[in-house]
């Protein structure tokens, strides 16, 4: 009895490790099916536009809202930190560099994992438990080509676009804050912004955004596709999609920083 209690945490750990490994394998399997499904343009071609709007255009307001307030706070915190010690035009440097390299992609990625990832997992999960995915199969459709491919492609295309827009708005908000709350001039802010600017920073942000787009949509599709049970199963899949994609985004963020910078 006592030995069992002692062993329980190890059993739990072992089971979790096996389940996680199995899920990673299944996710990889879905990835291969997605690659095969890309060839079926006749199935996903006419669905892509709708997903571009749903995943990209509809996400712009929340991404811009987050980015604009982040820009304001970045400028104010930079000026608070620099006062007296560092020239104030470095506010532009800090706002620009941080928004492009880190906060633009990561905050947008995390926001979209909640908005887009949850939406995909809930939609596909509901389709799974109400046999709509089975119905697609009986109508001779490849469900991966019909449901997964347009969502993943839309994520790959639109997440970088939304990140670039959000980053631009964040920097603009930081600039506006510098002008109206910090008594800086536009040339001062621009001087700081240009000081350490490198083209590579933008490429780095785009690479990160591409990986985030792939993560959010593929994990959302995976948990939606593998939903079991009824409403509870859909809820569980949705939660898992958001939690796992948020974690993977943060791991990828560190990975890209370690490998590309």
């Amino acid at each position: 009895m006592r030995l069992n209690i002692l062993l329980d945490p190890f059993r739990w750990l072992g089971r979790t490790a096996v389940d996680t490994a199995a899920q990673i394998g299944q996710w990889g399997g879905l990835g291969l099916q997605t690659l095969r499904g890309i060839q079926r343009v006749d199935i996903w071609g006419r669905l892509l536009l709708g997903q571009l709007a749903k995943i990209g255009v509809d996400s712009v307001p929340i991404a811009l809202f987050i980015a604009s307030f982040t820009g304001v706070v970045m400028a104010l915190q930079a000026s608070y930190t620099f006062t007296g010690a560092v020239p104030l035009y470095f506010v532009g440097t800090l706002v620009g560099k941080t928004m492009i390299l880190e906060l633009g992609p990561v905050l947008t990625g995390l926001a979209l994992s909640g908005r887009v990832g949850a939406n995909i997992a809930a939609e596909l999960g509901t389709m799974r438990v109400t046999e709509q995915i089975d119905a697609l199969e009986t109508l001779a459709y490849d469900p991966v080509a019909y449901l997964v491919v347009p969502r993943v492609l839309a994520g790959l295309i639109m997440v970088p676009v939304v990140v670039i827009l959000a980053t631009a708005i964040g920097i603009t908000a930081g600039w506006g804050t510098s002008l109206y709350l910090l008594d800086m001039s536009t040339p001062e802010f621009m001087k700081g912004l240009r000081l350490f600017f490198d083209d590579w920073d933008v490429k780095f942000a785009v690479i990160k955004s591409l990986s985030f787009g792939l993560t959010i949509t593929s994990i959302g599709c995976f948990f939606g596709f593998t939903t079991r049970g009824g409403a509870e199963g859909v809820g569980l899949s949705t939660t898992r999609a958001v939690v796992v994609s948020s974690m993977v985004i943060l791991v990828l963020d560190a990975f890209w920083a370690a490998t590309l910078l």
Partner: peptide
């Protein structure tokens, strides 16, 4: 294989318990 199944499915209609219409 899947391609063969799609051929068979084109000749089989399936009416689901709760209709499974696409919302």
């Amino acid at each position: 294989d899947l391609e063969g199944l799609y051929e068979v499915r084109r000749n089989v209609g399936y009416v689901f318990q709760f209709a499974a219409l696409f919302d």
